[in-house]
Write a protein that binds this DNA or RNA. Structure first.
Lengths: 341, 341
DNA sequence: GATTTTTTGATTTACGTACCTCAAATTCGC
DNA sequence: GCGAATTTGAGGTACGTAAATCAAAAAATC
């Protein structure tokens, strides 16, 4: 049978109370005694029964998610995943709270984080805007012992406990590689289409993209990036403009939202002259475009995975346990029409 | 607060004992009383705390994994993931047992499954060989109320509870699409390189690959598939042979194991004449080859994810709860050198 | 060596559910 | 309306761990 704390106590020749002190890192145990207990744990292969422990603790973990009130498909999906997770979380003694803040609004985000800090939750997750005041308040939370996870968009390494999102430089590089290879034997420039280059993720994607194009496809002309501000109408205009200026436009890498507009613009072109299009985030619209050969690849981050991973990481941080590293790496999914989920 | 059995008892105006009788389907409760309790459960939204219930029952879930004693990197990795999961499982009142069977040996697999059935575990997972006797015994297990998950390789839909693995037809299609597009502007035939076409997964990958090549790249010649039997030396010979017969060999899609041999053969060619190579499973060898531009893409299934998913599915089946569908879908990962984990 | 401080032991209660026993109340059959 | 059968109640113990209290023992300090 699986050993219990009682077996550890007996084996180490100490009392249950001492075992408890060691296991839960409480003070008041001599180093030698602590070691005796640890040896017993190792010798018997004791593993704490988490179900029993949580039952005994009667603890309810409260985690707060701060999400931007953005209306693009990805953010709507992300919000949905958090809500779904919140429903399931109750069964595992967790309570998730969702707080909305205006998008791209640093003071509002900072204010929300400060308000959250006062409530002293067991963990906080938020879609970061990489600005000094945000970093500062995040650091304050971490210093106060509240685990902080950045979701989708990161801060500097030092400002948070964990980042649940993709490596955007790698995503940009991947897009560059696919674009370059898919365009073999076809001339013409490539247009990088951003949401806003003020946003760190977008800058990183562009950097990665530009780097690969320079390294491996140096002969290919890369146009100056344009910013669609995640707005479909504006994006549609920008793409139309680029197409009229560059009749031989061969490729588009879109790494912001507002792809509905991009697809509308592409749709109008005859199939023969359509550029290779690679964009981010699998939504109903981009999926349909992929299926009907309007676009060529979608890079995706799995919002559901990001949310579940965030919760696991926060929980582990809250009770000092470890996570399975590989499980918490957020993949850069590449979808062609053939491997759609 | 979450309602407990006590709340149910109070709300229904019955004793704890009666609530217990109803919840656990014991006899000795009048229909009217039973209904009152059920109404209370519905009204309060009671959900049994499985952790507490299992603690009380002293139940330990025993899940058995049957793995082929294969020495290729993928199977070694899979075995490692199961072992790692087994270590973690103890903390959650689960005991994983690993049973080895000779690879590609139907009678041995059937015998192992039958032996397992006698032990009546709470769930069984195994790497299937799609043969009638295997289907039959799997169906018998399911009929006996033991959840059965096929891992990596599937049986027919009707023979098991769940399949934790990738869609191999889709994987083949994806490989076809990548091969076709990467080869634009380059002439020459493509070689499909199998482990064994006796194995269902490999047949499916080939079917998907051939379908896409026919649909979209009809002008490209596809050579007759060769079988490397997952053996590096033999694979190396086969590739060498193909290269000497077809001096203009433009692409290779390898969907079996033994890729070490393939890579050795490729390595000897001057960079200029190297075919586009797409293969399966990310290992140390294939990763190195990808980084050094010897191969062009790796399709991968995440063994760790497959194992963790299997355990979640078995657990849910064992206690009649539901899983998050999206979480249990095994992705076809596409790795280029730029998005390696 | 007496005093203070630190460490350890013994014991208890609690978490939410399962499962057992025994007695009391209710219903049923005739 | 009686005895018998069925249903219900009340209460307890158990699972493995957490966390608390209070007393006892050991170690450190002067």
């Amino acid at each position: 049978m699986k050993p219990t704390v009682h077996d550890i106590a007996a084996h180490a020749g100490v009392s249950l109370a001492t075992v408890d002190r060691v296991l839960n890192g409480r003070s008041g145990v001599r180093a030698v005694t602590r070691q005796r207990v640890e040896e017993a744990v190792a010798a018997l292969g004791f593993v704490r029964d988490m179900a029993a422990a949580n039952l005994a603790k009667g603890r309810v973990y409260t985690f707060t998610f701060i999400l931007p009130a953005n209306d693009n498909s990805f953010m709507i999906g992300l919000r949905g995943e958090v809500a779904a997770a919140a429903r399931r979380a109750a069964a595992e003694r967790m309570a998730l709270r969702i707080i909305d803040v205006p998008a791209f609004d640093v003071p509002a985000l900072v204010a929300a984080l400060e308000a959250v800090a006062d409530a002293r939750p067991d963990g906080v997750a938020f879609v970061a805007i990489d600005a000094p005041p945000v970093r500062a308040v995040a650091q304050r939370l971490v210093a106060a012992g509240i685990p902080v996870v950045t979701l989708v968009s990161d801060l500097g390494e030092a400002s948070r406990t964990h980042y649940a999102g993709i490596d955007n430089i790698a995503a940009g590089r991947t897009a560059g590689m696919l674009t370059g290879r898919f365009l073999q034997g076809r001339a013409g420039p490539v247009l990088p289409l951003s949401g806003s280059l003020m946003v760190r993720d977008h800058r990183e994607r562009l950097d990665g993209f530009a780097a690969v194009m320079a390294e491996r496809f140096a002969e290919r002309a890369i146009l100056a990036p344009v910013e669609g501000r995640d707005d479909p109408a504006r994006t549609e205009d920008l793409v139309g403009e680029a197409l009229s200026i560059h009749g031989d436009l061969a490729g588009i890498y879109s790494f912001g939202a507002g792809n509905r507009g991009l697809i509308r613009a592409i749709e109008r072109l005859p199939a023969k002259t359509r550029p290779v299009v690679i964009l981010h985030e699998l939504t109903d619209v981009t999926r349909a475009a992929l299926v009907s050969d309007l676009i060529d690849a979608v890079l995706n981050q799995d919002a559901g995975h990001e949310v579940r991973s965030t919760i696991r990481v926060l929980k582990a941080a809250a009770d000092g346990s470890t996570v399975v590293e590989a499980q918490e790496r957020i993949r850069i999914d590449i979808f062609l029409k053939d491997n759609l989920p």
